[in-house]
Design a protein around this nucleic acid. Structure first.
Lengths: 352, 352
DNA sequence: CATTAAATGAGTTGCGTACCTCAAAACACC
DNA sequence: GGTGTTTTGAGGTACGCAACTCATTTAATG
């Protein structure tokens, strides 16, 4: 009837006795210190495995003395998503200090490869872990690899650099996100046929490009009655997005769906709402799917202007980045299921 | 440019000096032990607050010596959702043992109030925390309150007992889940009008009743063109659900939507697929929304038989229950944002 | 065999807290 | 004033591990 999931665990002393060696040797093996014969290493590791020994994290943490330092390298400038991440880190302050963890925010021009790489290089040696919102560029990749080589744990956040040797990526699969957006637009448009518009920041941004790719994939294979118009590049700016979209809506009265890949949501909504385009604007007739839950998108969802938002929970991302860095630093396994950022579909009725 | 989120923290010795008392007195205040004058208590607490002191969890954990024991009281019998929770707890084994946490599974007949209450009473004194999938019944409520009074931390899982003094509820808001299901059925049906069927386990189950309530709410206010048929009570059994639904589909050729509130999904799908009801079955014509991502619902989503599943991540629930119990036992604050179980909308393209 | 290098043992210290004991001081009461 | 009670101080031990030193043993080399 009752079943125990966690057997009693031993201490290092027990392992030493089991392996027939001294505590010092166990310690050497555990921390990959030199001066132990391969055969002895094996005996110790066997004893550890045989008893499924886990070092007591509390004891280890206490014994190491110095606090751990983590750095979050984030884009400078006003970016609501990044501000949210910073806010969530602030909410963890008590949690962090109870574990003697120091987290520092470092702002840099993420879109300038040289500046970002320089910021990263400057961290070398001083930090146990670094989370970075990174651009996928050779110099950035090199900077990340240097950090890794120096023993710093590196996690990419939101935007990955798969070609680097970063230890982990905390963020969503953007192709899948685009596919999800496509499925939503297609399904919500329903029986109607017509055209679908895409507004993106830039097709040069890795995540935007991936989302568009996924979106088009689904549209082509599953919704042949809908034709996708060329991507508008609004540079994530409200004004530019509005102008481009307004012109497009004017030219194509049969637009039934819209996918906003990045920011500039304010402008997109304004264009949809523009009275000049029809008696009551097009906001309720066009299925509008975008990204991220902010104060603005929340309002648009409630008003029925936006139909769904694809969201990657920024709180989850912030916490996952910290937890992953901590687990890496401690040499603990990562609960991959827990740290995986899911693609959330947010509609009016499941607004968080 | 760089901003520290976590200032250096002091130790108990520093606090003692700050407050002008001895370590022993600080310890007495910190653990609400008697024998300290109110005025002194205030002085110590002031010093703690003034320096935003946080006890070092690692040191505290190490010093207390004995491991913590948590119990998960879950329904007996083959329930896929519960099995998943147990599996996820198994995945945490290393995490748990590194923290010297013992988690035990206790199976009981959750639908029998007396049996459940007895199971809970039997735990008194032996556990630091209990997570229970509870029925909302006076005797269960009393048993929970007894546990709480005995100093055990209690968390309700999946199904709440709001009238009890449980410390926390880990699960979704079922009314909101029903609303979400309603919105999905309504939106996915599109322009068509017709009838909508509901299959539930029993309207006597709190969570099912709440979901139906939320579903009807949305249907009535937002989709007046759809009329909801009386709820079928399939008792979460495949056969019974199939028979009831098959009869209903036969009687109403104009059913365009279906909400399956609980289990019995296999039966529901079979009824939809029944060739006797039409040339090719009704599975692709009826919008079908259900709950939970299992091997079965995953297949149905991929086949296009099911259109969306409302999901409460069982892995997240298992981990959240453990984390909340641990935080409660340690006297740490709970990261409510992190522990909140979200209502996930799962469609074919964002299957986890 | 002697010499040197490598491997291992034995031991110490300290991390910050919980929990305990015992004595001393402060206080309340008659 | 003396009594008894409450409050406070001082100190110790233990938790499990990291990190270190230094002596000793074992193996490799010439």
């Amino acid at each position: 009837m009752a079943e125990t999931l966690s057997p009693t665990v031993l201490t290092l002393k027990d392992i030493a006795r089991e392996a027939g060696v001294s505590l010092a040797t166990v310690d050497r093996v555990l921390h990959n210190r030199p001066g132990v014969r391969p055969d002895t290493v094996r005996r110790v590791k066997d004893a550890i495995a045989r008893n499924s020994f886990q070092p007591h994290v509390a004891a280890a943490e206490l014994a190491r003395g110095r606090a751990r330092r983590f750095a979050f390298v984030m884009p400078s400038g006003p970016n609501p998503f990044m501000q949210q991440i910073e806010a969530y880190l602030g909410e963890m302050a008590a949690w962090l200090s109870a574990r003697r963890l120091n987290v520092e925010m470092i702002a840099t021009d993420v879109f300038e490869p040289a500046a970002l790489a320089a910021s990263l290089e400057a961290l070398s040696g001083d930090y146990d872990g670094v989370a970075v919102v990174a651009l996928d560029h050779p110099s950035v990749r090199a900077a990340i690899n240097d950090l890794v080589d120096a023993g710093t744990k590196v996690v990419t956040l939101v935007s990955d650099v798969p070609s680097s040797r970063r230890h982990h990526y905390v963020g969503i699969d953007n192709i899948a996100a685009g596919r999800t957006a496509g499925a939503l637009v297609g399904r919500l448009v329903g029986q109607r046929s017509g055209k679908v518009a895409i507004v993106a920041g830039s097709q040069g941004l890795r995540d935007h490009a991936e989302r568009i790719f996924g979106f088009n994939q689904v549209m082509a294979t599953e919704f042949p009655d809908l034709s996708v118009l060329p991507v508008l590049e609004g540079r994530d700016e409200d004004d530019r997005s509005e102008q481009l979209l307004a012109r497009l809506l004017g030219k194509h009265p049969d637009i039934v769906g819209l996918y906003n890949v990045g920011a500039g949501t304010q402008g997109v909504a304004k264009a949809l709402n523009d009275k000049a385009l029809g008696a009551a604007g097009r906001d309720k007739q066009v299925v509008f799917v975008g990204h991220d839950v902010t104060a603005l998108t929340r309002r648009l969802l409630l008003q029925g202007v936006m139909d769904a938002a694809i969201s990657q929970n920024p709180g989850h991302e912030a916490r996952a980045a910290v937890r992953v860095l901590l687990a890496l630093a401690r040499g603990e396994p990562i609960l991959s299921e827990q740290e995986k950022i899911r693609i959330d579909i947010v509609m009016r009725d499941n607004l968080p």
